[in-house]
């Protein structure tokens, strides 16, 4: 049941997984919460599929489902990146040795 595109996608999947493992293993515990919220925002990439689902067909069930998916995925993307940015701004404002 496997065909060439699926094998190609599987290849990409496994290589991406290795890259992810290598990169993320180096994230220090200090930044684990921003890592979660930031990677969470990245998983909102499903918005691409949601836009295709809602924007392609007219007036059927898939448009409704696609619309809900767009809303969910956008909350995920916008909320995720913004809240990560808010957290990281706190990590950045290191005070000089006045404290």
């Amino acid at each position: 049941m496997l065909e060439v595109p699926a094998v190609a996608a599987l290849t990409i999947l496994i290589l991406a997984f290795f890259v992810g493992f290598e990169v993320i293993s180096k994230v220090p515990p200090l930044l684990h919460t921003p890592l979660m919220s930031g990677s969470n925002a990245i998983s909102g990439i499903t918005i691409v599929g949601a836009i295709l689902a809602a924007g392609t067909h007219d007036g059927d069930l898939s448009k409704v489902l696609g619309f809900i998916a767009i809303v969910f995925a956008t909350v995920n993307v916008v909320g995720g990146f913004l809240v990560t940015n808010r957290m990281l701004a706190m990590f950045q404002k290191r005070k000089p040795d006045d404290s």
Binding site: I12, A16, M36, I45
Partner: peptide, 12 residues
């Protein structure tokens, strides 16, 4: 795009 991003988040 979904395959790569999903794999990154899954690994994380």
């Amino acid at each position: 795009a979904l395959v790569i991003s999903g794999a990154l988040v899954g690994a994380s």
